[in-house]
Nucleic acid binder design. Structure first.
Length: 219
DNA sequence: ATCCCGAGGG
DNA sequence: CCCTCTGGAT
């Protein structure tokens, strides 16, 4: 079987993206998070818990602490009380207060629109920084390739067997997908990976992109 | 039981 | 490289 051309791969990826978008939407950016600060907080909170849980907790959180200034002065225990239904709430609360303090002390009260500076914020690593760049600043800097993205890229054969490291997978995906869709990958694939393309016992039979998947049913 | 939109720390 | 932090969904 001949290797699929980049053009063909791009075409297939575009159809896959249409399905994913229809199913999962564009991500946090579609919600009421008006400022980079709010969106950054929401993305930090999203780790290890559902979007629904985050969306339920954030209104009270932002009512109490609408700005980096106010959050910087908060007691982490009070913040923890507002996000108790989320996972890792104590460490998240501590990180969020420290994050606000860092924003005030080092970045003039504004969340920085820079993928490296963002990672100076407590609780913000590569993945979160990527999401914030995509969703808050509409300036995607890449695709964070975690185990889910890695697995899905290989199953969909968007990245071939020679793409044996996360960096290689990312390089390929950045060529396959247009830049303005990079942010969607981070958001949508995680949900897709949980609902259909699970590590074990994936739901190939009713998968929303099963007809576009070269390895359908092989897992 | 097992997994999840990770990141920090030893 | 390993561990820890956490509730919720399935």
């Amino acid at each position: 079987m001949a290797r699929e051309s980049l053009a063909s791969k791009r075409e297939r990826a575009a159809t896959i993206e249409e399905r994913m978008y229809a199913h999962y939407g564009p991500g946090e950016a579609s919600l009421d998070y008006r400022t980079p600060f709010e969106l950054t907080v929401a993305v930090v909170l999203s780790a290890q818990c559902t979007d629904a849980a985050v969306n339920k907790a954030t209104p009270a959180l932002f009512a109490a602490y609408p700005t980096p200034q106010t959050l910087a002065q908060a007691d982490p225990a009070d913040v923890a009380g507002l996000i108790r239904s989320l996972g890792f709430f104590r460490s998240k609360a501590k990180n969020l207060v420290a994050l606000a303090q860092t924003v005030m002390a080092d970045f003039g009260g504004e969340v920085p629109a820079d993928v490296d500076l963002l990672q100076k914020l407590p609780g913000v690593g590569r993945k979160t920084a990527n999401c914030v760049m995509c969703e808050a600043f509409k300036d995607p800097q890449g695709i964070a390739v975690d185990t889910h993205v890695f697995r899905i890229a290989h199953r969909l054969k968007l990245a071939g067997p020679s793409a044996d490291t996360p960096q290689k997978v990312e390089d390929i995906l950045l060529k396959v997908y247009p830049r303005d869709q990079w942010g969607y990958i981070n958001h949508q694939w995680v949900h897709f990976g949980r609902e259909f393309c699970r590590a074990r016992s994936p739901r190939c039979a009713d998968c929303i992109v099963g007809d576009l998947c070269p390895t359908r049913g092989r897992w």
